[in-house]
Amino acid sequence: MTTHLRVAAAGPSSTVQDRGRVGYQRYGVSVAGAADPLLHAVANALVGNPASEGAVEFTMLGDTLTVEGGPVRLAVAGDAALFVDDQPVPSWTSLRLRDGETLRVGALREGTRGYWAVEGGFALDPVLGSVATHSRSRMGGLHGTALKAGDRIPLRLDAAADRGEATLDPSLLPTRGEAIRVVLGPQDDAFTPAGIAAFLDGDYSVSHEADRMGYRLTGPVIEHARGFNITSDGIPLGAVQVPGTGQPIVLLADRQTTGGYPKIACVIGPDVAALAQKKPGDRLRFRAVSVAEAQAIHARHRTALAGLPGLLRAAGGFALYDSARLLGFNLIGGAVTGWE
């Protein structure tokens, strides 16, 4: 019998994500994929999966999962309260659950998105090369949309081996600065100098219209130079589009492929995830960097991420993976998000 995880209770928006659906934007297919690829990679690393494996991204509140079969090795990345059959267990640490045991992933104490991964991954058929869920087009994931109570998620591995568990100290992860860094363009010439100054000098807050597709912000009005319609063109990750209201919308993983509002700037890859961890009411400022600076930030980020497997420690004094396995984690690479 195939081992399953039964969703006893689902968080408000929990979706299977990987690094996204690459190569189909030209056909109108959104990339999707993890909104915070770093934490997604951490959850996978904790259970010994490559970073490209599908894992569940939960929003604010996690899911309650009961093992059918097993045992199942599972880990949560994110500061959430966890309970196995009502006994508290640590986050950022893999654990092995037996048939009938239930893991409850509670609310995140920090950030908006956490991830849980299972060793071996989910037994789901990729759609156009990816298991990433894109709810708006009902593509990928378990049934094209968010997990719901009663779902049974088939696992690729019937029984996880009895071996040491892994843990990671999240304070060692790359820190995220206050400002959200942007490169101006592609249509910064569609705005007045006063409009660009308002965008770069103003305080913005995340509105309640904030999801995996985009974050609508409220703050100083960004003045257009000549109307707010452009001939529809492609939308890069992190694009800041400004519709007629003058209030910016930052477009994230589930964004539409094309659009007709001018884009004043694009958030750089490493900061897209930082933004996606903010919640309604959070405040933020933008800071312009040159393309060369953005490239340098990206390179530093890759170096930090390359060291991620080295941050894994054995939990409870057991021997962890051998070094060959660590090197095989492949936490770098993948251009989907521009973050790795």
Binding site: V22, G23, Y24, Q25, R26, T231, S232, D233, G234, I235, P236, T257, T258, G269, Q295, H298, R302, I332, G333, G334, A335, G338, E340
Partner: peptide, 16 residues
């Protein structure tokens, strides 16, 4: 990947 539109091509690249 590339996204050809009415009057432009978006070229997505791997910064690494």
């Amino acid at each position: 990947e590339t996204v050809p539109t009415y009057r432009s091509v978006l070229v997505v690249f791997d910064p690494a």
